[in-house]
Design a protein around this nucleic acid. Sequence first.
DNA 1: TTAGGTACTATAAATAATGTAAGTAATGAG
DNA 2: CTCATTACTTACATTATTTATAGTACCTAA
Lengths: 120, 120
Amino acid sequence: MSEIKQTSTNFSNKAALSDECPEAYASNIIGGQWTLVICSWLLSGKLRFGELKKKLPGITERMLTLQLRKLEENKIISRTVYAEVPPRVEYEMTEIGYALKSVIKELEAWGESHKKLTSK
Amino acid sequence: MSEIKQTSTNFSNKAALSDECPEAYASNIIGGQWTLVICSWLLSGKLRFGELKKKLPGITERMLTLQLRKLEENKIISRTVYAEVPPRVEYEMTEIGYALKSVIKELEAWGESHKKLTSK
DNA sequence: TTAGGTACTATAAATAATGTAAGTAATGAG
DNA sequence: CTCATTACTTACATTATTTATAGTACCTAA
């Protein structure tokens, strides 16, 4: 599953940080390029692969897949496949995923005020 | 200053996301490998370069420098140089930097509960 | 028979982030 | 003069993440 090299210094540094600092641990999980935006959208309701894609102009299908897989691995979203043709797959926040809401709110608020401050 | 290529798709994707989503914007700023841990330490008081280094086993001087520079650029920390020999440089949170406290708290709390959940 | 929709996968390439190792300037202590 | 201290800088190597492009399986409807 991993595309990372478990012998690299980077790997062990990340592991050590994750181990000791819950905030670094969290950041490793939600730190992907598109992760937070995907979560934001899913916080307001379940969505299909294609729907997500439309909401994220610029993302490639590969990236979307990768991020969704990682989120699923980390139990942040659930994936439901309907045996239809053409296929239908729905993504939805889990409970712990839904708990990200307050994190994202804080990030948003801080981001806004930082943006205001630095654009002066 | 930038190590990023302003013509890359990655650059424009990040810019677009930052533009539209304050949470992605924030994540871009505090998303570095060591950033949150550095901020955590500085939230409890100013520290010198060497002190930070000791608190972050595994970090290289290059990485510490890079992250501090980025934080400084983003006005999250301030840097004060004392004209002494050997040199003394102190890093301290700015006001907007200090405002990260609530973000970090949320991240920590979520990280803890996620860790608990997935280690069962 | 062919085209079309959906949610992917495979492979390669480009870019970004991080790590390694060595060197620098300034000055005071010995 | 030589060495130690501090906070870096530089050049390069390695690893990680993101992008690009093409192709797949399945059934349905025309």
